[in-house]
């Protein structure tokens, strides 16, 4: 049986396919009405075993704006998982009804496991602290829009790099573009995991690690802030000790380049102070908007509906 297309990690897409998705997303953004019926009669199953606002709404809105429909749950206690059904059986059953599955799960590798059993395309909407590839597509669209390029950039990622699935996917994906350089800004306990650094080593991509945001910020083209995620910590004490480690303020922004952009996958807690929101370099709310269009493009692509009829 032919394996269905899937997006579990950025490596599932070629560079050509990424640029195709970004072009398509921008085309949808420019003329959404053209795509309003493209998914008519198609069904998206949205399986959220972990809370989400942005990503779930973004996928649901994307499918509805394409003329399709959405089924699913956002609380695993209301699904058959509560009865002890395995993820594999859940995947087999849901793929009998749906044309595409979007899954978020607290366990790392869960989306891949589901994709192995589903008979339709599966999209990883976040698997624990591992990967979040559709956030990466959102980020790429935002970077391309604000920086005008996806190459020759110095990208600083700051905060919880250990459990930050968005930045694992982003750094892995950006490493395929030429002239990239990374600065990993985190406390020692939350440093970037080995699997991301291995990838950079293998591809001779330069990176440095520091715990000093003020010293690093002046060299950056992009500052990607992340939240220290309470839900990933076993110890509340450890979370409380690390949660305020980095806070981006207007004083720190004064040290940055005039054309640097600040990104954040949201939700934020207090790692970016509210006064930074009005800084023209803060683009995190634009990121949210881009997310829906790039997910519309991805749904069309995985369903083979991305080309004109």
């Amino acid at each position: 049986m032919e394996r269905k297309r899937r997006l579990i990690e950025p490596g599932d897409l070629s560079t050509g396919e990424i640029f195709h998705l970004l072009r398509l997303a921008n085309d949808i953004l420019a003329d959404p009405a053209k795509y309003g019926e493209r998914c008519k009669g198609r069904l998206l199953a949205s399986l959220f075993y972990e809370p989400s606002t942005r990503t779930k709404f973004s996928f649901d809105a994307a499918m509805l704006r394409l003329g399709g429909q959405v089924i699913g749950f956002s609380d695993p206690n209301t699904s058959s998982a509560a009865k002890g059904e395995t993820l594999a059986d859940n995947a087999r059953v849901v793929s009998c009804y749906a044309d595409v599955i979007v899954v978020r799960h607290p366990k790392e590798g869960a989306a891949r496991h589901i994709a192995d059993y589903a008979d339709c395309p599966v999209i990883n909407a976040g698997d624990g602290g591992h990967q979040h590839p559709t956030q990466t597509l959102t980020d790429l669209m935002t970077i391309q829009k604000h920086m005008g390029r996806l190459e020759n950039l110095t990208v600083g990622v700051c905060g919880d790099l250990k459990f930050g699935r968005t930045i694992h996917s982003l750094v892995s994906c950006l490493s395929r573009f030429p002239g990239m350089r990374f600065v990993f800004i985190s406390p020692e306990e939350l440093q970037m995991p080995a699997f991301v650094k291995d990838l950079l080593h293998r591809n001779d991509i330069p990176y440095e690690e520091t715990n000093q945001l003020e010293q690093a910020i002046g060299s950056l083209d992009i500052l990607y802030m992340t939240r220290v995620q309470r839900e990933r910590f076993v110890s509340e004490e450890e979370y409380l000790r690390l949660k305020d480690y980095f806070i981006l303020t207007e004083e720190k922004m004064a040290l940055a380049k005039p054309d640097m952009i600040v990104m954040h996958p949201l939700p934020r807690v207090n790692e970016i102070q509210r006064d930074v929101d009005s800084d023209p370099r803060a683009v995190y709310f634009d990121q949210v908007k881009n997310g829906m269009y790039v997910r519309m493009a991805l749904i069309l692509f995985l369903l083979g509906l991305d080309k004109e009829a």
């Binding site: 395995t86 594999a88 790392e108 590798g109 891949r112 496991h113 591992h130 995991p193 080995a194």
Partner: peptide, 26 residues
């Protein structure tokens, strides 16, 4: 979950470390 027999990929021959195909942990 009762996953298929897991495949691990060699990531460091010196330390004989392998990465899990599901979560990438060494």
């Amino acid at each position: 979950e009762d996953v298929e027999p897991i495949t691990f990929h060699l990531v460091d021959a010196r330390t004989k470390e392998y990465a899990c195909e599901y979560c990438d942990a060494r």
